[in-house]
Design a protein around this nucleic acid. Structure first.
Lengths: 326, 326
DNA sequence: CTGTTAGCGCATTCAG
DNA sequence: CTGAATGCGCTAACAG
């Protein structure tokens, strides 16, 4: 900015006014400064600016990791942001194994210097406001509490998946569950158990194992599940990533899908269609979830409180080729 | 930081030293300060810190938009970053229609206050260093020039796609090209033309139209292509997004795929498998491209120049269900 | 070992 | 209408 000021023969303050469209600058100097700015390719530093003005005009999406789930969400937010005038930044902090609290630390770091508001994905704990900026949670640890939240109907999804498998004639149905600390995982499991109960089929507890939502964490449990003496005829995996890994494990064990084993996933991330065979799964409207979260955040940034503090979107069945009737 | 200092009964400078692990702090004060930091949940502000130290330890990925291509790349970068000690931020600035220069402006904005280095995706123009930070380009406008670059072998991909269609017996082959300002688009088209020439098949220029890489921009040209009197029997679309939209247009025109029309795409983004029918396409190793770019950037941040300044990865055929033999 | 001082790039008073 | 002074939160050099 000093360079621009010198070049234009004015003071730094004047340049600042021009950049921020403040009144009190003559037309002549305005254009001169604008010209110099264009020539030099000057652009205000985000960090320094926010240090003073406490406003950056950018919204942050905090994710633990860029995997299919979070990137789908991101696409939804990205599509919806064009009309808002905000810019978008996605941040993935490092959190060596600590699954709790990473979002708080990252948020404080970015708040007040990089972003005006944040969407946090699968956070473990959040307050409604962190570091002075508004926050909306997507699919949080504890289910909707004090923070504006958007999620999908995980319970219904669990029921749908289970009833589908039951309808196909399966009885020995395994459940490869998600991260026990996430409400979404608990709800999917609850849907599974209640659908089984309603159908009068008893759940074999040895067939309910923790997959943890990630491919690596699912591999061991999946192998265990499929190596036993009386293995299941179908497995309901808590998300697509673990379902896909389960398919790979099954194949390595010489099991054919769906002939020897039916598998159903959850999420409907694009990768599920890439699997062989294409994975039957429960779809969450990921992009719509992202768009809804953005909508709520913008409302909060405008100083209002979002009308419904919790938005819950429906889950639906997507039938592909990984299940068969018994 | 002032709060922490007061609470711990030390000066701000001492807190700074503790935070940054500098020498010259007694064990006693160190622990005391650490305790207060934990209590208060203090986290240094990214912006303010970098203002002073010119280092943030975060790497930026700049994209025009979060669509399948860039998010795949992002996954690759994300996977590769764990071992580096850097954090990752993805930024999508606003650029109402201006396809040129957005990356330069965003870069200057973030450089020296948010990121230490950047990977820019499909940039139109970049210098080797912008705002004082190192930059590597992925799939740039002009092809590898002065900036370290990684891309896929677009020419070979164009040849492969075209020869595949020719091998299937097609002769009236259309090409829905990409953004004419991008080198990758030009190379794919060149591959198409040369493969046609080598096979002794003349290109009907009315069958070569600009699709622009985006679904919206491809719709009109696709419709035009398929509505004409002697329409093509096959189309080679410059990327998956435009190929998928072309399939939708074809369907709306009452054409069945692949019975009435064969379509092949380019990129192999996950969405291509979700299409109905699943799209046959030319795969770019997007995640590997992202990982390679990160590798080069880290090398540059360490003060070295990356060994090969331009990395070119191979493209391969992925046969699915959108093409048939004539 | 610790505190003091100065200044990173910018936006905002407040005087000219 | 413009410029000089001040401080945002932090770190680096230096002094104690």
């Amino acid at each position: 900015m000093a360079d621009v000021a010198r070049e234009a023969g004015v003071s730094v303050a004047t340049v600042s006014k021009v950049v921020n469209g403040r009144y009190g600058v003559s037309r002549a100097t305005l254009e001169k400064v604008l010209g110099v700015i264009a020539d030099l390719g000057y652009e205000a530093s985000l960090g320094a600016r926010s240090l003073r003005s406490l406003r950056t005009n950018v919204i942050g999406v905090l994710v633990a990791e860029f995997e299919p789930f979070s990137t789908e969400l991101l696409k939804g937010v990205s599509d919806a942001i064009d009309s808002t005038g905000y810019e978008l930044i996605a941040y993935s902090g490092r959190h060596h194994g600590e699954t709790v609290g990473w979002e708080r630390r990252s948020l404080v770091r970015l708040a007040g210097s990089v972003i005006d508001g944040a969407i946090v994905v699968t956070p473990t704990i959040v307050d409604a406001e962190i570091g002075g900026i508004p926050v909306v949670a997507v699919d949080p640890h504890t289910g909707p509490v004090d923070v504006p939240t958007v999620d999908a109907d995980n319970y219904a999804g669990g029921v749908i998946a289970t009833e589908y498998l039951l309808g196909l004639g399966h009885r020995r149905i395994a459940h490869l569950s998600g991260r026990p600390d996430l409400e979404s995982a608990r709800l999917r499991e609850r849907g599974f158990r209640e659908a089984m109960a309603r159908a009068g089929v008893e759940v074999d507890e040895r067939l309910v194992v923790v997959g943890g939502f990630r491919a690596e964490s699912a591999e061991g449990p999946a192998r265990e599940l499929l190596s036993g003496p009386d293995r299941p005829t179908a497995v309901f995996a808590a998300n697509d990533l673990s379902a896909i890994r389960t398919m790979e494990v099954a194949r390595s064990l010489g099991l054919r899908i769906p002939e020897d084993l039916s598998i159903i996933g959850f999420d409907n991330v694009p990768e599920s269609a890439l699997a062989t065979p294409p994975l039957t799964t429960i779809a969450q409207p990921l992009k719509a979830i992202g768009a809804a979260a953005l909508q709520m955040l913008v409302t909060m940034l405008d100083g209002a409180t979002p009308a419904p503090a919790h938005v819950r979107l429906p889950t639906t069945m997507v039938e592909r080729a990984s299940c068969r009737a018994l």
